[in-house]
């Protein structure tokens, strides 16, 4: 009898579970929307135990600073946050001080002061409209959350940054637009940002566009989910705890119910 109950339970639960999976998958695959497929890379931070690669993140910060930050802001990130990708207080202070922020002095005038570690990353444009105006109407999105804000964000961004190829002959590319094989609609307002040796890495890594795209993606993935390593680490302990509790409560339940289920 118990066996048949269990069978009943397992078959029905599995049906329900499968349907739930279908629901979630349909949502997910829909979110993945665009029909363009791009290379699936093996990121150090993907998977249940994945962590960020510090060296790659630091190179990524350099790429962001020297290439992307001309147009793209990262307004949710503070300079102090760089501590978690391996910089010390003095380095962060110096990095921050390269930027200026507006402040109001005692005479009520707007003046500039060097940014401090507690400040957020200084955006290249004072506001969205200025950003749009300076880029021919195309708004360069803020990059703080870009990996989370795009389906399959890391692979997408890497593909996009390396997806600049010559347009097919029948494709007309208007002025101020560029052809990118991974961009939805193929015409993108951002010119190709990464070229061979576009930056000079301090650690001697060869700065190929592919390498730079990987590095800046690693940096931006962290910027989107700075809590990721803590989250996964805590998750492992919580799961172990719950497996223990599940096992214990299962056997305790069997013990308590034994006299009732006895034939």
């Amino acid at each position: 009898m118990i066996k048949s109950l269990l069978l009943f339970f397992s078959s029905h639960i599995s049906k329900l579970f499968i349907s739930l999976v279908i629901i979630s998958l349909s949502n997910f695959s829909f979110a993945a929307g665009e029909k363009i497929s791009y290379p699936q890379l093996n990121w150090s931070f993907s998977g249940i135990l994945g962590t960020f690669d510090r060296a790659s993140q630091q190179r990524g910060l350099q790429v962001y600073k020297e290439v992307c930050s001309g147009c793209h802001g990262m307004r949710l990130l503070a300079y102090r946050n760089l501590k978690s990708i391996g910089y010390n207080d003095d380095e962060i202070k110096a990095f921050a001080a390269d930027n200026n922020v507006n402040t109001i002095n005692d005479d009520g005038e707007v003046v500039e002061r060097p940014a401090r570690p507690s400040d957020k990353f200084v955006s290249p444009y004072p506001n969205d409209k200025a950003a749009r105006a300076a880029n021919g109407g195309a708004y360069p999105p803020d990059l703080s959350l870009i990996i989370k804000a795009r389906p399959d964000g890391a692979n997408y961004l890497h593909a996009l940054l390396t997806g600049y190829v010559d347009a097919p002959k029948d494709q007309k590319v208007p002025d101020g637009m560029y052809y990118n094989k991974y961009y939805s609609g193929n015409l993108i307002g951002m010119p190709q940002p990464l070229y061979e040796d576009g930056v000079e890495y301090a650690d001697g890594t060869k700065a190929t566009p592919d390498q730079m795209a990987k590095d800046v993606t690693a940096f931006l993935a962290w910027a989107s989910e700075p809590e990721m390593e803590d989250r996964k680490r805590l998750g492992v302990s919580v799961m172990l705890f719950l497996f223990l509790l599940t096992a214990l409560s299962y056997f305790a339940m069997k013990q308590i119910w034994a006299p009732i289920k006895e034939k």
Partner: peptide, 30 residues
């Protein structure tokens, strides 16, 4: 009470897996 505790443990195992490892799976990137 013990059966509910067992059920809760199983439920929490699924829930925690989502929270810690796939927190945005059921959300939308936009």
């Amino acid at each position: 009470t013990i059966k509910d505790l067992f059920g809760l443990s199983v439920f929490l195992s699924f829930f925690a897996a989502a929270v810690f490892f796939f927190p945005n799976f059921m959300g939308h990137p936009d």
